[in-house]
Amino acid sequence: MKDTPMTNAKISAKGVDVHYADTHAIKDVNVEIADKTVTAFIGPSGCGKSTFLRCINRMNDTIDSCRVTGDIRIDGEDIYDAKVDPVQLRAKVGMVFQKPNPFPKSIYDNVAYGPKIHGLARNKAELDEIVEKSLRKAALWNEAKDRLLSPGTGLSGGQQQRLCIARAIATAPEVLLMDEPCSALDPIATAQVEELIDELQKSFCVVIVTHSMQQAARVSQKTAFFHLGSLVEYDDTDKIFTNPEDPRTESYISGRIG
């Protein structure tokens, strides 16, 4: 590939700015995210971490007033290039949302939805296999295998979120974006999902937004601290939590701002 940056980063962002109608939500963010790691975005509410996350799979396109400038590349390809179809991009970059949002369909159909629209399975047997594999990867297979045809909305909150994760990985993405995936869950369900994230890191490039610093410390290798729309500090998680360079990062992790 021609203008691939010299790093081996999966995702690289340069000079990214995001404007909503008249607010400047993201200011000149530069970041490189490595494959097969978990990267956490932390920061106080409204700091832009979710907005930036949604730039990576162009979910911001669905908001009329949102304007993204700058350069975001995945595998060296500019995802905001006019030739890129966001539909194709999103098959490659999966996303899990804050609140579990299973479709009002059966568990099976929830997981099979992505593979079906992307035509990933040639027949029913292959589809069954994808569904099973995804549910296994999402650590939901044992709980769900006997009720694949019952509605996904009937599951508990934690199970619903794992179903959404299974749904996301069923399309065989390379990047998995998670927008505060545990904020609507109780501690036990949170622990299960965190464990799962640890597992997912082996096969995906995982980016997780969280407002829980403990969670970031638990699950991630790299952490980026956002404040007022700027990326303040980006480094190894251990470094951020033990010896941050920027005073703002320090105040945040010690609980003085946010």
Binding site: I74, D75, E77, I79, D81, K83, V84, D85, V87, Q88, L89, K92, H118, G119
Partner: peptide
Amino acid sequence: THKSLLTADARI
């Protein structure tokens, strides 16, 4: 297989 994002396949 790595599919480029820059080229739309037939299905898309």
